[in-house]
Amino acid sequence: MGASAQGHFVTLPDGLQLHYQDVGAGEPVVFIHGSGPGASGHSNFKQNYPVFAEAGYRVIVPDLPGYGASDKPETIYSLDFFVSALSGLLDALDIQRCVLVGNSLGGAIAIKLALDQPQRVSRLVLMAPGGLMEKEQYYLQMEGIQKMGAAFANGELNDAAGMRRLLGLQLFDASLISDETVDERVAVVKQQPICVLSTMQVPNMASRLAELQCPILGFWGMNDKFCPSSGAQTMLEGCSRIRFIMLSECGHWVMVEHRELFNRECLAFLEEARP
C-alpha cells in the first residue's frame, strides 16, 4: 500500500492539494488524524476505516495539509487553517452532512468544524481530542508532546529506530506498532517542513463546549502522554448528549490499542444515533 495507501487527490479553490481515501457507500464518516511527525490518515486509521466501509458507511480519510501525501506549504498551521481545508474537501465531495471521527489534533478540528458549521455534523466521535486547555499546559504537562517536538526538530525521526522510539510514546504497549506503520511515517516525515509542528496553534475551546448539539462518543486512555485524560471530565461537564469510554492500560491511540472495542462501540453508536 505504500506510505499513504492509494487514494485520491483534490485541489481546493485556494490551490491546496489534499490526498484522501474514499471507500464504501452510505452515510459519510470522515476520519481526521492527529498531528505528529509523519502522520497520515491511512497510517492512523488503517485498522478502523475498512471496518466502517464494510458496515455500510462511506468513509473519507484525508491527509491533513502538512501531512501524508497532501501539500505541505510553508504557512502557519492554525486550527482554522485545518478546518478550512477539511471544509473545502467536504465541499469538493459535495458532502452536506457527515459524522466526524477525530483523534488528538483531529479531535480539535472536529470540534471546531461542529462549532462553526453545526448543520454539517450529525455526530462526533472523539479520541483524546486537543483544544481543551491552554497550549502552554500541554507543553508543560505532557511528556509525549515535549519529546515529539524535540525529536522532530533534531532530525531524529528520519530513520526507523528513531520513529519507533517516538511512536512508542503513543501507546501503552509499544509492541503493537508495526514495522509498516514506522516505515509509512518515516517516508512522510522527510517531506515535512519544520513549520508544520512549530507553528501549530490550537486554541482552548473548553468554554464553547456547551454549543455542541450533536450526540458525542468519546474515548480516552488513562496512560495518554499527549493529551491528559482529565479532558474527558472537561467534555462531560461541558457537553450534552455525550458519553465517554475510559480505558486503563491505554495511551494516545485508542483506535490502535483497542481497535476491536473502538470499532464495535463506534458502529453501535452510529447505528443508534442515525438521524
Rank of each mutant, 00 (worst) to 15 (best):
V51H: 11
L267E: 01
A85R: 04
L247C: 06
L64T: 05
Q21K: 12
N48C: 14
L126S: 02
L261E: 11
R241D: 12
L157M: 05
T181H: 12
Q117I: 03
F219H: 09
E134Q: 13
P118M: 03
I177T: 14
A206S: 12
M148G: 01
L12H: 06
T199V: 09
E184T: 13
I32Y: 02
Y139A: 09
F269M: 02
V23G: 04
S78C: 14
S229T: 05
Q146P: 02
S43I: 05
M142A: 01
P13N: 06
I242E: 00
S198A: 14
I216N: 01
L197Q: 11
M205P: 06
A128R: 02
E74I: 07
L261T: 09
G34A: 04
I177C: 10
I109R: 03
F45N: 01
Y57A: 05
K112I: 00
N158G: 15
G106L: 06
L157C: 05
N158W: 10
F52M: 11
R208G: 00
S207I: 03
I32V: 15
A151Q: 00
I76H: 15
K147G: 00
L115V: 08
E180W: 14
V121P: 05
S70C: 08
N103I: 04
L270K: 00
A174R: 12
P65V: 15
I145T: 06
L100S: 06
K46V: 12
N263E: 02
V101Y: 13
